[in-house]
Structure formats: C-alpha cells, structure tokens
C-alpha cells in the first residue's frame, strides 16, 4: 500500500496528455491574432466570440480524451475507486 501510494504521488503527466492539453491553449490564447475579427459572422455572433464559445465543448472534449487515455494506462485496481457513483 505504501509503495502504491508513493508511486501515485509521483505520477507524472504523459507526453500525449500534455500535447492534447496544449491544444486548447493554442486555440484560446496564443492564436488570438488569427481570430480577432468580426467576419465571418456565425449564427449572428462575431467570429471571435463564436470561436471562444465553440472551444468550450472542444476544450472538454480534449480533456476527456486525456482523461480516458490516463485511465487506460492505470492499473485496473485504481479504476474501481470506491464511492464514484456521481
């Protein structure tokens, strides 16, 4: 138990997880010069605001992929965490 706990404490993110998590950072932060404009207007909303709204579900999608990858890589025991009914 102690050893399992110890390795858990030192659990580092994988390269794949980090790369996936960088995607929303690129989309929402570093690429702002590319989408800081009104046109094309989508669904009546200026493009920059539409882009930000679009990336709300896409950010969760990226993190969901990270999460499912991480879960697969973990030992089966850790996947049946107690009391996870919600």
């Amino acid at each position: 138990m102690n050893n399992a706990r110890k390795s858990e404490l030192l659990r580092r993110p994988t390269l794949g997880a980090l790369l996936l998590a960088v995607v929303p950072f690129l989309a929402l932060c570093f690429t702002v010069p590319l989408w800081n404009r009104i046109h094309p207007v989508v669904l009546g909303i200026p493009f920059n605001l539409f882009w930000l709204i679009l990336w709300i579900p896409l950010t969760t999608l990226c993190m969901w992929l990270v999460y499912t990858r991480d879960r697969k890589a973990e030992p089966a025991e850790a996947n049946t965490t107690k009391g996870d009914s919600r």
Partner: peptide
C-alpha cells in the same frame, strides 16, 4: 472585446488544474 479574456482564461484554468490538483489531493 478585451472582456473576452474572461472566457479564455477560465476554461484554460481548468485545463491546467488537471495537471496539479489531483496530485495535490493525493498529497
């Protein structure tokens, strides 16, 4: 438009938290 920064940083704050909050919880 500068108000849009609020939408950007909140989402990304949650993304970043994935890489340290669970570890902090274990500690």
């Amino acid at each position: 438009a500068p108000a849009f920064y609020i939408m950007g940083y909140m989402s990304l704050g949650y993304v970043a938290s994935y890489f340290f909050l669970p570890q902090l919880w274990e500690l």
